[in-house]
Write a protein that binds this DNA or RNA. Structure first.
Length: 576
RNA sequence: GGCAGCGUAGCUCAGUGGUAGAGCAGGGGAAUCAUAAUCCCUUGGUCGGCGGUUCAAAUCCGUCCGCUGCUACCA
């Protein structure tokens, strides 16, 4: 059995993430990981994620909270982790890009790249703020736009006229942090990754993946290549980060750290090493990441479209460059699943404007499965998708409460009333059960293919179709009618219907794991041992035997009422 | 400005050359086990506009309009 390595883009440590981050990388990756574990065994799947902790925004956020950056990063790592636990994200390990493991790996990659001639030192001119005592990234310099006169233009781009700027273009430039005009342009040296040398190799690679990867990914990657790959600075003048080792460039870069986009993808490997160390098997990470021991590993990355350039160009250059001088090459990604944006009422989720829903708030309102189902059924796969409370409520009420929840409830309540609390033994399967099995076999096949191909919207549609098929079965079998004339037939229908609940638990588990566990427990299955169906559907419908005790779980999904929807809109800034 | 993606039924979206599809909403019916839930049937679209290629275009090409995003020192 081949193994699958899964990573989702590292959430930035800067505060609490909103639902867009969940929908566009972590949640689909988790669904895929859960599906693959059920299919090929948990030991053949490794799902890795981590907080991305370096960079200017984190340092500034720490200043704002009055915390040392290390404490700030630790705090938000902890907070994010607990929220992801709440959403049932089943990381095998959730690491930190500031870990010692990542420091070591990042420095090792840099040394190898330096030795291989893939890095060089260049002097750049950078804005320095004397008041803030730090270099400022372009966007943290503000001033008057030379083109349109907008007086709060940022150094990278004017938000008013959308023109791309250089900080030196600005009239009356000042620091965006302190507002101080006491800034100057200073020379500073940085390491550059010679990406341009890899343009041909990257293009060949991307072209080869064109039919396999989605348009979001390949079109963004090819756009960068078409515009010409530029070499990229991979160090910064900051305190917090992975230090550039002294043995690179004769110590000329002493005191500088690597650019967050250099060390963040390496943390995929770093976090795997954290995982290996944590479980006391310190070389286990290499069996996933390095040839030849990882020959059976397929590596899949999940990310939003903003991350695509770094995963199709930057990180691959790091890997390919290092591999040129290694007899144990690093794993290059096999498949990239990219997502568009989840919008909020057609606009962006916005922290500053208090629009949209943050993950901690979402969990306060409703359990994880409500969000997980909605976000997978409406995943921004082919285009941006838009969250509205009306749509959310309609989806939850119809699909989860009416179609799934009510099915379980109607079957188990009727069964308890007529047959007690164990699965009845009477009666035999007939043509109705055969029809059901034929239908399920087809639906399970379609659903499995969609999950395997990571078509999440379609997968959710197929899962829903399975729930509908369950309702159709009981409507045709009508045990409430047959109970009057042919109690054995009624018993057989109920036995099949209870097995349907068990099967639904297995099939639903990747998307709605908490509900799946509740269903499994209700019909006497071990929720930790749900195996993906591979055999005949008819056999799947006979797994739960006569005499098995079952319980009626509390109502699985409540409905969102119109006045609640209105209240949420008011609270979260929805405008309908 | 340049580039990319999108524009299909009231809503959310499939469909990439061969007689327009799904779910929801709307309408009709059945059933009464169940969270008044379910099941069946059904109304509804000149596939953004215009032009072209083709025996045949939602699908390919051109052009225009609209929405969204990206444009490399935010990540």
């Amino acid at each position: 059995m081949s193994r699958i390595l899964i990573t989702s883009a590292l959430p930035y440590v800067n505060g609490i993430k909103h639902l867009g981050n969940l929908a566009g990388s972590m949640l689909p990756a988790d669904v895929y990981a859960r599906f693959q574990r059920a299919r090929r065994g948990a030991e053949n799947v490794l799902y890795i994620c981590a907080t991305d902790e370096h960079g200017t925004p984190a340092e500034l956020a720490a200043l704002e909270e009055g915390l040392p950056i290390a404490d700030y990063a630790a705090k938000y790592h902890r907070i994010q982790k607990s929220i992801y636990d709440g959403f049932q994200l089943s990381f095998d390990y959730f690491g930190r890009s500031s870990s010692p493991q990542n420091h070591a790996l990042t420095q090792e990659f840099a040394r190898t790249l330096w030795a291989g001639g893939h890095l060089d030192v260049r002097t750049t001119r950078q804005v320095y703020s004397n008041a803030d005592k730090r270099f400022l990234p372009d966007r943290y310099v503000i001033g008057t736009c030379p083109h349109c006169g907008y007086d709060r233009a940022r150094g990278d781009q004017c938000e008013n006229c959308t023109r791309v700027l250089d900080p030196v273009d600005l009239i009356e430039p000042r620091s965006a942090l302190s507002g101080s005009p006491d800034i100057e342009i200073k020379d500073t040296s940085h390491l550059f990754l010679k990406q341009s040398a890899f343009a041909g190799e990257i293009r060949t690679w991307i072209e080869g993946k064109k039919s396999e990867w989605g348009t979001v990914v390949t079109s963004i990657a090819l756009k960068w290549l078409d515009e010409g790959l530029r070499d990229r600075g991979i160090t910064r003048d900051l305190e917090w980060g992975v230090p550039v080792p002294d043995d690179i460039a004769d110590g000329k870069l002493k005191g500088k750290v690597f650019y967050v986009w250099f060390d963040a993808p390496i943390e995929y490997i770093g976090a795997t090493r954290e995982w290996a160390d944590a479980k006391g098997d310190p070389t286990a990470w290499e069996r996933w990441w390095r040839a030849p021991d990882n020959a059976d590993v397929r590596y899949v990355e999940f990310m939003g479209k903003d991350n695509v350039p770094f995963h199709t160009v930057g990180f691959p250059v790091t890997i390919l460059g290092s591999n040129k001088s290694s007899n144990r090459p690093w794993k290059l990604v096999d498949e990239i699943k990219g997502f568009n944006w989840l919008n909020y009422y057609g606009g962006k989720f916005s922290t500053s404007q208090k629009r949209g829903i943050f993950m901690d708030q979402a969990l306060e309102i409703l359990p994880a499965d409500y969000w997980r189902y909605y976000l997978i059924a409406n995943a921004p796969e082919s285009a941006d998708s838009s969250f509205t409370w009306e749509h959310f409520a309609a989806t939850v009420n119809k699909d989860l409460a009416d179609v799934l929840g009510n099915f379980v409830n109607r079957v188990l309540k009727f069964a308890t009333a007529r047959f007690g609390s164990t699965v009845p033994a009477e009666g035999k399967d007939g043509p109705t059960e055969q029809d059901l099995a034929i239908r399920l076999e087809r639906l399970i096949g379609l659903y499995t293919v969609q999950l395997e191909e990571m078509q999440f919207r379609k997968a959710a549609q197929e899962l829903r179709a399975i729930w509908v098929a369950a309702n159709e079965y009981v409507a045709v079998a009508a045990p409430w009618t047959t109970i009057k004339t042919d109690p054995a037939a009624s018993a057989a229908s109920i036995r099949t219907a209870i097995n349907l609940i068990g099967l639904i638990a297995v099939l639903s588990a990747p998307i709605i794991p908490q509900t799946a566990s509740a269903l499994a427990e209700a019909v006497g299955l071990d929720p930790n041992k749900l195996i993906w169906p591979t055999g005949k559907a008819a056999d799947e419908l006979r797994k739960i035997k006569a005499g098995q005790a079952f319980t009626v779980p509390p109502v699985l999904f409540g409905k969102l009422l119109p006045d609640q929807v209105e209240a949420y809109e008011a609270r979260f800034g929805g405008d309908s």
